[in-house]
Design a protein around this nucleic acid. Structure first.
Lengths: 144, 144
DNA sequence: TTAGCTTCTGAATGTCATTTTCAATATCCT
DNA sequence: AGGATATTGAAAATGACATTCAGAAGCTAA
């Protein structure tokens, strides 16, 4: 089931309504590989739909996270970012602390070790966050 | 060098001053295993030192992070927490999403894999964040 | 020790992302 | 279509964090 269907399904099940704004936001959100903050997406949408409200964008992004087609990311810069999520395609992030570049990685060996740790402590893991912060190759060159 | 000395050293080197409030905050901060938010520590201190200000607690915690005797943690609940840090004793966290329990873990195999990933992408890692979210054994029992 | 300079403190205020409110509007169901 | 209910967008509220400022306290040199 694609993400648009997942969203529609969720909206129906919850007795919510399917509005133009939500569709427009969804399409724009899915049609990019970016990690949008509310601000980012709002600015992008405003070019084509000047009447759209900031609060609507924000509420809709939260809704995406709620229904599982997006996840909230928080890299500690005081801005929550939202990332379109593909079912069963988990990944983690490398974040350049200089230019803000975000690179995704997956490492199944780490995932397995996580499970071991969880069972050691009798935790039932729901999700995790794993971020590596440092300089990307370009910034490392520039800044020594 | 213990953490009090590290702090005093830092204060001296930076031309800052050694005040009563800072000492009181430092002692309380180090004398607990908690992961304090500014609010938490402020409330705790207030019992014994009612005149201490929120801003002072907050500024001092930032100072601890600055001089390396604490790190800022962010578990995505909108509150920055500060953790007393022991030099060379890095660890990551298991966080119970139900009761808020925080358990620390270390796993050198994961650390090694991280380094491999970083070099794959030509990143120069400065720090990382690795958190596993889920239910602790108690909450898992209670909530099924 | 004191004078004099600098930093610190605490209360108040500012800032910024996010959330809520509310009246007008749009959607959905029958 | 009619009517109940959710949504929208502008504005205001919230909450964590940061800054300001005047008075207080720490530091340094003589």
């Amino acid at each position: 089931m694609d993400r648009i269907s997942v969203f529609n399904e969720y909206v129906r099940r919850k007795g919510l309504k399917n509005t133009n704004q939500r569709m427009v936001i969804l399409e724009t959100f899915l049609g990019s590989k970016s990690h949008y903050s509310t601000e980012d997406l709002y600015m992008k949408l405003r070019k084509e739909y000047p009447k759209i409200g900031y609060a609507t964008v924000h509420r809709t992004l939260k809704l995406f996270a709620e229904c599982g087609i997006a996840i909230e990311l928080n890299f500690g810069d005081g801005q929550t970012r939202f990332e379109p999520l593909i079912a069963d395609q988990h990944h983690d992030h490398l974040v350049c602390t200089s230019c803000g570049l975000i690179v995704e990685f997956t490492e199944t060996r780490i995932e397995r070790l996580q499970e071991q740790i969880a069972s050691q402590y009798n935790f039932k893991i729901e999700r995790h966050r794993h971020e590596l912060y440092g300089l990307c190759s370009d910034c490392a060159k520039k800044q020594g």
